[in-house]
Amino acid sequence: MVRLVVNDLEIEAEDGISVLEACLNNGIYIPNLCFINGMSSPPVSCRMCFVEIEGEARPVSSCAVKATDGMKVRTDTEQVRGLQRTAFQLLMSVHDVDCGRCPANKRCPLQRIAVFLKVPLRPGRLEKHLKNPDVDNVHPLIDYYPNRCMLCGKCIFVCREKHGQPRMTFAKRGFETVISFYGEKDLSGPACKECLACIDICPVRAIVTKDQAVE
């Protein structure tokens, strides 16, 4: 066990876990989208989980730093919030805000983070970039909605865990980046049919079974 101080509160954490996990386990919320409990090497891709740690010149991603004894952490400084708001607005600039028709409505981490950071879901100052077409139905069992997806990569992570070899991947680049099943064989076979872990893990319901597409 290690003891660290977060926002002037002393907490205990298991050895070897990240600052993010330590805080979440102790009921201190840090916005995060791409981290899964127990990940040994988190992707550090969502740029939401910044904290300030005493001794560090700049805010750091808390998922990528191990909690150590005597560490002093602040999760709520102006600088941290500034980075989180910008990162969030960038994410929302490529997100189709259509909550009324989205199956993730009311259990969506983006909605939670918007409330937490006091940022509207439609940030006006950034240009909106949506992908076309807005649904990919190549997979025989799954529909993928690229404009809901915030590219956290959790689906690829769980797919790799389950099958050793992920049956999906990030394809293309920049604004065009999508999740793709291109070229994978037997997508209608039992490997997908009996698993569907990607659907369960997707925080924003960008990956849904075909019959679940509209809820």
Partner: peptide, 25 residues
Amino acid sequence: APEAILMVAEHIGIGASEVYGVATF
């Protein structure tokens, strides 16, 4: 070609989608 991507995936021992992911980058 899609067939070529499949063959490359098999040769290297990774998924076809991964080959596609790299190539589209």
